[in-house]
C-alpha cells in the first residue's frame, strides 16, 4: 500500500485543463482547471446552472468536451491522440473506460424492472461477463455494506428514496471502480433520509475511494471532503481545503453563495 501510494503520488486521478463545453450557443463550462488526487474526496458546490453537474458528466464522457483536455488516470477521456489530432474513441473503448468509473445520479436511475440484487449485479454480469453466482455473492456483500441485507429480492419501487440511492451506490461499487462520481446524490431525498446516504458515502471515503461529489450538503463537504471547489457560471471561482473556502472565502461570489446556504 505505502509503496503503491508513493509510486502513484505524482499521477492525479483526474486532471482537467481548460475544459470547455457548449450546449448550442450557451457555454456552460468556460475553461475548468482542476486536479483530483488519488484517494481524495473533492466536493463541488455552487448555484444551479453553474456547470458542476455538466463537468461531472464530462469525466465519464456522458457529455463530450468541446475544448481543453480531461484526463482520468493519465488517459484522455473519450478521445485518442493520433498525430496532432484528437479522434473520438470507438463506442466499445468508451464503454470500457466508463466501466472503471462509478456514477451515482440525483434521481437514482435504478432499473425498475430488476430486483435490488439484479440491479447491483447488472454491471458485473453484462459488462464484465462475471458468472451470476459469483456476482450475486459479491452483490449480497455490497448490499450488506450499504445496510440493505435481506432486501435482495425487492424491486426499487418498494424501497424508500434513501434505500434506492444506497442500492445505486452498491450497483456502482459492484464494478470495482477506481473513481466514484456523485451527482447531487441527496438532492431528491426527503430530509430525514439524507443522513443514511451520507453515512454510506462517509464510509466509502474512509475506505480510500477517490470521490468527486457535486452536492449542496455543506456539512458533508466540510467534514468528509479533502478539497472543496466553488463553481459559478461555468468557472471555478475558488478551490482549496474545505475549512479555508468555507471559513474564509476570498471571492465575493463565494461569500454571497455561502451566506445563502449556510
Amino acid at each position: 500500500m505505502t509503496s503503491g501510494t508513493n509510486a502513484t503520488s505524482g499521477h492525479p486521478m483526474v486532471e482537467a485543463i481548460g475544459v470547455r463545453k457548449k450546449f448550442g450557443l450557451v457555454e456552460v463550462l468556460k475553461g475548468i482547471d482542476l486536479t483530483v488526487q488519488r484517494g481524495e474526496v473533492m466536493c463541488i458546490i455552487g448555484p444551479s446552472g453553474s456547470g458542476k453537474s455538466t463537468f461531472l458528466r464530462c469525466i465519464n464522457h456522458l457529455e463530450k468536451v468541446d475544448a481543453g483536455q480531461l484526463f482520468v488516470d493519465d488517459e484522455l477521456v473519450g478521445y485518442q491522440r493520433r498525430g496532432n489530432r484528437l479522434h473520438e474513441l470507438r463506442e466499445r473503448e468508451i464503454a470500457r473506460k466508463r466501466s472503471e468509473i462509478g456514477m451515482v445520479f440525483q434521481r437514482f436511475n435504478l432499473f425498475p424492472h430488476m430486483t435490488a440484487i439484479d440491479n447491483v449485479i447488472s454491471g458485473p454480469v453484462h459488462v464484465k461477463s462475471s458468472s451470476r453466482t459469483n456476482a450475486a455473492l459479491e452483490g449480497e456483500r455490497l448490499l450488506a455494506r450499504v445496510g440493505l441485507e435481506g432486501r435482495e429480492r425487492t424491486y426499487p419501487r418498494q424501497l424508500s428514496g434513501g434505500q434506492q440511492q444506497r442500492v445505486a451506490i452498491a450497483r456502482a461499487l459492484a464494478m470495482e471502480p477506481k473513481l466514484m462520481l456523485f451527482d447531487e446524490p441527496t438532492s431528491a431525498l426527503d430530509p430525514e433520509l439524507v443522513g443514511e446516504v451520507l453515512d454510506v458515502m462517509r464510509d466509502l471515503a474512509k475506505s480510500g475511494m477517490t470521490m468527486i461529489v457535486v452536492t449542496h450538503e455543506i456539512g458533508f463537504a466540510r467534514e468528509v471532503g479533502d478539497a472543496l471547489v466553488f463553481m459559478d457560471d461555468g468557472v471555478v471561482v475558488e478551490a482549496g481545503a474545505p475549512r479555508d473556502v468555507l471559513g474564509n472565502p476570498q471571492h465575493k461570489r463565494t461569500q454571497d453563495f455561502l451566506s445563502k446556504v449556510l
Partner: peptide, 21 residues
C-alpha cells in the same frame, strides 16, 4: 433517459443498453 445514462455509466454499449435495460 436516465435509464440509458445509468446503463452507459456502468459501461454497457448502446446495444446492451437497448437489450437489457
Amino acid at each position: 433517459e436516465g435509464q440509458t445514462e445509468a446503463a452507459q455509466a456502468l459501461g454497457m454499449t448502446r446495444l446492451q443498453t437497448m437489450r437489457r435495460i
